Amino acid sequence: MLYLEDLKVGDQFKSREYEMTLAEVEEFAHKYDPQVFHIDAEATQTHPVFKKIVASAWHTSAVTMRLLTECFPIANGLIATESSLRWTRPANVGDRIHIEIEIVAITPSITKSDRGIVTYVSQARNQDGDVLLLATNKILVMKSNLGHGQS
Protein backbone atom coordinates (compact mmCIF):
# COMPACT_ATOMS: atom_id res chain seq x y z
CA MET A 1 0.00 0.00 0.00
CA LEU A 2 1.20 3.47 -0.89
CA TYR A 3 1.02 6.54 1.33
CA LEU A 4 1.51 10.21 0.52
CA GLU A 5 5.20 10.12 1.43
CA ASP A 6 5.75 7.17 -0.94
CA LEU A 7 4.68 9.16 -3.99
CA LYS A 8 6.47 11.75 -6.10
CA VAL A 9 5.63 13.77 -9.18
CA GLY A 10 6.57 11.76 -12.26
CA ASP A 11 5.80 8.35 -10.74
CA GLN A 12 4.15 6.08 -13.30
CA PHE A 13 2.03 2.98 -12.98
CA LYS A 14 0.76 0.56 -15.61
CA SER A 15 -1.98 -2.04 -15.32
CA ARG A 16 -2.51 -5.49 -16.73
CA GLU A 17 -4.67 -5.93 -19.83
CA TYR A 18 -8.40 -6.47 -19.65
CA GLU A 19 -10.36 -7.86 -22.60
CA MET A 20 -13.73 -6.35 -23.52
CA THR A 21 -15.86 -9.39 -24.41
CA LEU A 22 -19.13 -9.24 -26.32
CA ALA A 23 -21.00 -10.91 -23.47
CA GLU A 24 -19.73 -8.37 -20.95
CA VAL A 25 -20.34 -5.37 -23.26
CA GLU A 26 -23.92 -6.48 -23.80
CA GLU A 27 -24.50 -7.33 -20.14
CA PHE A 28 -23.22 -3.94 -18.96
CA ALA A 29 -25.27 -2.13 -21.62
CA HIS A 30 -28.50 -3.99 -20.82
CA LYS A 31 -28.03 -3.11 -17.16
CA TYR A 32 -26.75 0.48 -17.35
CA ASP A 33 -26.67 1.92 -20.89
CA PRO A 34 -29.22 0.17 -23.13
CA GLN A 35 -28.51 1.97 -26.37
CA VAL A 36 -28.71 0.20 -29.71
CA PHE A 37 -24.99 0.52 -30.52
CA HIS A 38 -24.15 -1.42 -27.34
CA ILE A 39 -26.65 -4.26 -27.69
CA ASP A 40 -27.94 -4.80 -31.26
CA ALA A 41 -25.36 -5.79 -33.88
CA GLU A 42 -27.86 -5.75 -36.75
CA ALA A 43 -29.37 -2.34 -35.98
CA THR A 44 -25.94 -0.84 -35.37
CA GLN A 45 -24.91 -1.59 -38.97
CA THR A 46 -27.04 1.39 -40.11
CA HIS A 47 -26.11 3.70 -37.20
CA PRO A 48 -24.65 7.02 -38.47
CA VAL A 49 -21.59 6.83 -36.18
CA PHE A 50 -21.05 3.24 -35.06
CA LYS A 51 -21.25 0.36 -37.53
CA LYS A 52 -20.70 -2.37 -34.96
CA ILE A 53 -21.33 -2.93 -31.28
CA VAL A 54 -19.06 -0.82 -29.07
CA ALA A 55 -18.69 -0.74 -25.31
CA SER A 56 -20.46 1.93 -23.33
CA ALA A 57 -18.13 4.75 -22.33
CA TRP A 58 -19.30 4.12 -18.79
CA HIS A 59 -18.26 0.47 -19.13
CA THR A 60 -14.80 1.63 -20.23
CA SER A 61 -14.75 3.91 -17.18
CA ALA A 62 -15.72 1.05 -14.88
CA VAL A 63 -12.98 -1.18 -16.30
CA THR A 64 -10.53 1.71 -15.91
CA MET A 65 -11.52 2.01 -12.24
CA ARG A 66 -11.01 -1.72 -11.73
CA LEU A 67 -7.54 -1.58 -13.26
CA LEU A 68 -6.68 1.53 -11.21
CA THR A 69 -7.48 -0.26 -7.98
CA GLU A 70 -5.15 -3.09 -8.96
CA CYS A 71 -2.11 -1.16 -10.14
CA PHE A 72 -2.29 2.01 -8.02
CA PRO A 73 -2.53 0.61 -4.46
CA ILE A 74 -3.21 3.70 -2.40
CA ALA A 75 -3.63 2.99 1.31
CA ASN A 76 -7.21 3.61 2.43
CA GLY A 77 -8.46 3.54 -1.18
CA LEU A 78 -8.75 5.87 -4.15
CA ILE A 79 -10.81 8.63 -2.54
CA ALA A 80 -11.73 10.93 -5.42
CA THR A 81 -12.12 14.66 -4.88
CA GLU A 82 -12.26 15.79 -8.52
CA SER A 83 -12.18 14.32 -12.02
CA SER A 84 -12.06 15.53 -15.59
CA LEU A 85 -12.86 12.79 -18.08
CA ARG A 86 -12.76 12.49 -21.88
CA TRP A 87 -13.69 9.51 -23.98
CA THR A 88 -11.60 9.89 -27.12
CA ARG A 89 -12.84 6.78 -28.92
CA PRO A 90 -15.00 3.78 -28.10
CA ALA A 91 -13.72 0.45 -26.88
CA ASN A 92 -14.52 -2.28 -29.35
CA VAL A 93 -15.45 -5.85 -28.56
CA GLY A 94 -12.16 -7.74 -28.33
CA ASP A 95 -10.10 -4.71 -27.32
CA ARG A 96 -7.54 -5.44 -24.63
CA ILE A 97 -7.47 -2.38 -22.42
CA HIS A 98 -4.72 -1.35 -20.06
CA ILE A 99 -4.18 1.89 -18.20
CA GLU A 100 -1.18 4.11 -17.73
CA ILE A 101 -1.00 6.57 -14.85
CA GLU A 102 1.37 9.44 -14.12
CA ILE A 103 1.39 11.57 -10.99
CA VAL A 104 1.50 15.24 -12.03
CA ALA A 105 1.10 17.09 -8.70
CA ILE A 106 1.16 16.48 -4.97
CA THR A 107 -0.31 19.15 -2.72
CA PRO A 108 -0.02 18.68 1.05
CA SER A 109 -3.06 19.84 2.98
CA ILE A 110 -2.65 23.24 4.63
CA THR A 111 -5.11 22.47 7.42
CA LYS A 112 -4.59 18.74 8.00
CA SER A 113 -0.98 17.57 8.22
CA ASP A 114 -1.86 13.88 7.86
CA ARG A 115 -2.95 14.09 4.19
CA GLY A 116 -2.65 15.68 0.79
CA ILE A 117 -4.15 15.77 -2.67
CA VAL A 118 -2.47 13.77 -5.44
CA THR A 119 -3.27 14.70 -9.03
CA TYR A 120 -2.70 12.06 -11.67
CA VAL A 121 -3.42 11.63 -15.35
CA SER A 122 -4.70 8.27 -16.50
CA GLN A 123 -5.06 6.92 -19.99
CA ALA A 124 -6.97 3.81 -20.97
CA ARG A 125 -5.38 2.38 -24.11
CA ASN A 126 -6.22 -0.55 -26.32
CA GLN A 127 -3.80 -3.16 -27.66
CA ASP A 128 -2.80 -0.82 -30.52
CA GLY A 129 -1.93 2.02 -28.13
CA ASP A 130 -5.01 4.07 -29.07
CA VAL A 131 -6.24 6.24 -26.20
CA LEU A 132 -9.85 5.41 -25.34
CA LEU A 133 -10.21 7.41 -22.15
CA LEU A 134 -8.18 10.30 -20.78
CA ALA A 135 -8.73 11.56 -17.26
CA THR A 136 -7.17 13.95 -14.81
CA ASN A 137 -8.07 13.00 -11.26
CA LYS A 138 -7.44 14.31 -7.78
CA ILE A 139 -7.49 11.92 -4.86
CA LEU A 140 -7.09 12.29 -1.12
CA VAL A 141 -4.04 10.38 0.08
CA MET A 142 -3.15 9.91 3.72
CA LYS A 143 0.31 9.93 5.23
CA SER A 144 1.36 6.83 7.09
CA ASN A 145 0.89 7.06 10.84
CA LEU A 146 3.84 4.67 11.27
CA GLY A 147 6.46 6.69 9.41
CA HIS A 148 6.10 4.32 6.44
CA GLY A 149 8.28 5.38 3.53
CA GLN A 150 9.85 8.33 5.29
CA SER A 151 13.55 8.92 4.99
Rank of each mutant, 00 (worst) to 15 (best):
E5Y: 04
E26P: 11
Q127Y: 01
T81H: 14
W87L: 08
E17D: 14
T111F: 11
T64S: 11
I110R: 15
V36P: 07
E19L: 11
D95H: 00
N137K: 10
L22I: 07
V141I: 08
G116F: 04
Y18H: 13
A62T: 06
F72T: 05
D114R: 14
V141Q: 03
I99F: 00
V9F: 01
L85W: 09
T21M: 09
D130E: 12
T64H: 10
R66E: 02
V54D: 05
S84I: 15
S56K: 09
A124W: 06
Q127V: 04
I79F: 10
D40W: 03
T136P: 01
A62N: 00
T136Q: 06
N137Q: 07
H148E: 15
M142N: 09
E70T: 09
Q123Y: 05
R115P: 05
K138Y: 02
T69E: 12
M20H: 11
L78V: 10
T107K: 13
K51E: 07
T69P: 09
A43M: 08
T21P: 08
V93K: 00
I79E: 09
S144T: 04
T21Q: 11
V121A: 13
A124G: 06
K138V: 04
I74R: 12
L7A: 09
L22C: 01
S122K: 14
D128R: 12
S56Y: 02
